[in-house]
Design a protein around this nucleic acid. Structure first.
Lengths: 298, 298
DNA sequence: AGGCGGAGTTTAGAAAATCTCAAGTCAGGC
DNA sequence: GCCTGACTTGAGATTTTCTAAACTCCGCCT
């Protein structure tokens, strides 16, 4: 079916005249006339009556066009939705751990500041292709050397041991870690080795007994909160637990992991206002969190 | 907006794959891919995710396409309606008088015989342009010499005086008409003159007192039924009134008017089955009516 | 490893649809 | 009777859209 022909018919029916419809469609009256003719021929039925002084709908045409109008309105709504979404919906891709432990608890403040921006959090472990998806922004951990994207450092990742307050009583110096379960995080490139080194401990530090290990950073921190051992925590993911006392950070020795949280966006297009607004807010939240966290943890 | 692009998007979303959609649309996969790209660019938002092994809808795309599907379904229904109408609806244009006095009382028999054909009676006094309207068939009175149309004689028009039974008692021979009101029909080319001539009356026959005159043949016959005078009746329009005795036709002298009822259709296209069915039925009804009428009126 | 095949994309050229402009028709109004 | 407004028609130009073929990417199979 001739969609453009149908649109021409609909427009003429609604505008009441070929000339007005041509104006609405932004083409010449001749073009519209030809569209009409073709559509009627294809349909095998007259839609308009030629009355010498203008066009008028046939009885059949009136019913037909009523449906056309309804159909095109629906399409119009779909496109309007898309356009509204393109300007007012911000899709952010983040790792589930970051979403649940940092982003989500702070979202209500973002909504208060930017009520016009509807946020969609796409929490997935995979790395989305920013150029070929509807994701506007991603927050990712890494070394910032991803190819083909714009990556801006949000926070340099530092790590440090954390544990439940009850467990902390048994720790007065780093070497005491040898007597407590140490929780390992298999999923990241950050290992205890570097922290042992920064704390001035012997190179192959004997961790006995070996604690549990997890593939998700959240689980490691949860285990620490539950008193199952000492975990190597990341600042942002453990900030809230440290703030309300569920965790404590003994020793005060932190070590840079060499990695960081990055705000990642497509290189192909300049970031829109909504992306810039979100980035700015996010940086503020990180700064606020780090300020509070600094006084408690260091 | 790119209607064809939207259709491509909708089809891909529904079919789940570019290749299947291309098949549905009857074009190459390449064409569909380009449509998708153009539409997404125009919308400024990704609708599909490129997952290496195929396309999948983004969260936004799913909502968008749901609306598209609904819109296109509405358009599809409109077109389906049109196509059904093109095959099963028969639009007949007739004069109001003929419609009310002959056609409508007999329509139930047509519906019984052809329940699949939906009849639309367009009762208008103007002559419709069969080539440029949705009228399939017209029934018109005249001399059959209309240009550019196919006109088939349905019945040669004959005229004769009619009046209410009470009035008929005062009429034993044509000359008695001089003493009764004679009803004139201004709208037709048929005048009393020819009947007076056929009845063998003097050329300028003195009609005294002059009866009422009307511009619609129905009104003349109605006036005759009401006993207001003698009208010059047409066979088909007065047939039912003669059949049930509301009118009688004194003298039995009829005269050919030189005009006739014609079934008129467009010359441009061969009449479809529905047109032929209706024509055949109409001829039968006319024949039946004339047979009955003949026994009573002549 | 390496080759194969499915799925989607890209490119360039070809084909088709659509547009514009100009001329033509037709009816109603001054 | 001529003019004007509204639509149609026709021819050529333009734009869009399509096809075909090469290309990329990824998973799968040997």
């Amino acid at each position: 079916m001739h969609l453009n022909g149908l649109r021409a018919v609909e427009s003429v029916a609604r505008c009441g005249s070929l000339v007005k419809a041509a104006e609405e469609l932004g083409v010449s009256a001749s073009a519209v006339s030809q569209q009409l003719g073709r559509t009627e021929a294809q349909l095998g039925r007259a839609i308009f009556q030629r009355t010498g002084a203008g066009l008028s709908l046939t009885a059949f045409g009136a019913e037909f066009c009523a449906r056309l109008t309804s159909g095109f309105q629906e399409l119009g709504r779909a496109v309007a939705l898309a356009e509204e979404a393109a300007t007012n919906v911000l899709v952010v891709s983040v790792a589930p751990a970051f979403a649940s432990r940092f982003l989500v608890p702070r979202l209500n403040r973002f909504n208060q500041r930017h009520p016009e921006i509807k946020l969609r959090i796409d929490a997935s472990t995979g790395l989305v292709d920013l150029d070929h998806s509807d994701v506007d922004l991603a927050i990712r951990m890494g070394d910032g050397t991803w190819p083909g994207v714009r990556a801006e450092l949000l926070l340099a990742q530092e790590v440090f041991p954390v544990c439940a307050p009850a467990l902390a009583a048994k720790l007065s110096e780093p070497a005491d870690l040898a007597h407590l379960p140490v929780i390992a995080d298999e999923s990241t490139m950050i290992s205890w080795e570097r922290w042992f080194e920064a704390a001035g401990l012997a190179k192959p530090f004997p961790v006995q007994p070996a604690g549990p290990s997890f593939t998700d950073p959240i689980l490691g921190i949860d285990a620490a909160v539950a008193g199952q051992g000492v975990a190597l925590a990341w600042q942002l993911l453990s900030a809230d637990a440290l703030a309300d006392g569920r965790l404590v950070a003994p020793f005060g020795i932190t070590v840079a992991s060499g990695l960081g949280y990055y705000v990642v966006s497509s290189k192909l297009e300049r970031p829109g206002r909504k992306v810039r607004d979100f980035s700015a807010w996010l940086r503020e939240e990180v700064a606020k969190t780090m300020a509070r966290f600094g006084t408690r943890a260091k």
